[in-house]
Simulated scan of single mutants.
Amino acid sequence: MWKEVVRAAGSYAFDHVLVRLEMDPIITVNQEERWIDVPVRIGESRNVVRVQGTGTTENPEFVVSSKNDEEKDLLLHRIQDLFQWDVDLDQIKQHFRKTNLSTLFNDYPGTPIVKDFHLYDCLMKVIIHQQLNMKFAYTLSSRFVQTFGELVDGVWFYPTPERVARLEYEQLRELQFSQRKAEYVIDTSRKIADGELDLAQLSTLTDDEAMKELTKIRGIGPWTVENWLMFGLGRTDLYPKADIGVQNALKRYFQMDRKPTKEEMVEMSDDWDPYKSYASITLWRSIEG
């Protein structure tokens, strides 16, 4: 068993991270004790890494621990990457102080991009969640993981693409998936298992290149790709203008009597580059709870 103390580069709202992650029923979170157990796959091994917050938003500090002593460095590096502790969120706040979102970033400081735990898991989740209300979306993704995934030390791991590729559509239909969504999940998993779709290779492309490649796949549209880029890869300049949550947050923040049009959203974001993803997640935060 190893433990390591890690500090973030700038302000970091870990308690908000816990609230957001606990929205997903399969993620093991304890808000009172301020920890989360993270499932980490390295090759064939399944590891549970605990991340506990011991600092404040202004002075963030974390204790990271796991049973796997042999792969400590790999696990620690993965956790630091997932939680994006090397990103100085204070610098990003300084950027937005010169924009029309200055008040938003003062009210909600230190809002990080926390990446989903694995690229495949993230893609499956956004495919499952697309065009569904949040409650039913998490119901479906939870059923998917708890039926076909693996429970290790009380923590759920998503099924592998090879496991999902062997499923029949009817097995997902039994979980209340629509026929089309069952096809999207299984057919995409088959492309990954067969090597036709390489998510690691896609992660080396630009946002526009990845968008072009992924939207060729049946069932994957721009909203899905934008969310995968943001939460799978941690890309910093995504602004999902079709997202209802972003639209509602902008309506509230700018005190509009209706949701903004896409043209208005483009105009609003004129000086947000290259951090539109941080604008998006801070807007989401402003209307959560």
Rank of each mutant, 00 (worst) to 15 (best):
F117G: 03
F96R: 01
V63R: 02
F62I: 02
D73A: 14
S66G: 09
K115R: 04
H77L: 09
S102A: 12
P60A: 05
I92V: 15
D121E: 15
V64Y: 05
P112M: 03
E70R: 13
P109R: 00
L104F: 10
F117T: 04
L89C: 02
E70Q: 12
Y120H: 09
L119I: 15
P112T: 03
N68R: 04
V87P: 02
H118S: 15
P109F: 00
Q94F: 06
K125Y: 11
W85K: 06
S65N: 06
W85F: 10
D90A: 01
K93E: 10
Y120K: 08
H95G: 02
Q84G: 11
V87G: 00
P60C: 08
N59R: 10
Q91D: 14
D116G: 14
L74W: 07
I127K: 00
T56H: 04
L89T: 03
D90G: 06
N106T: 11
H77P: 03
D121V: 06
E70P: 08
D81A: 12
Q80I: 10
Q131L: 14
Q130E: 10
Q130L: 07
T103E: 15
E61D: 14
V63K: 02
F105H: 01
S102T: 06
Q84L: 03
T57W: 04
H118Y: 12
G55N: 09
R78Y: 06
E58K: 09
L74N: 15
E70H: 10
N68Y: 08
D90K: 00
S102M: 07
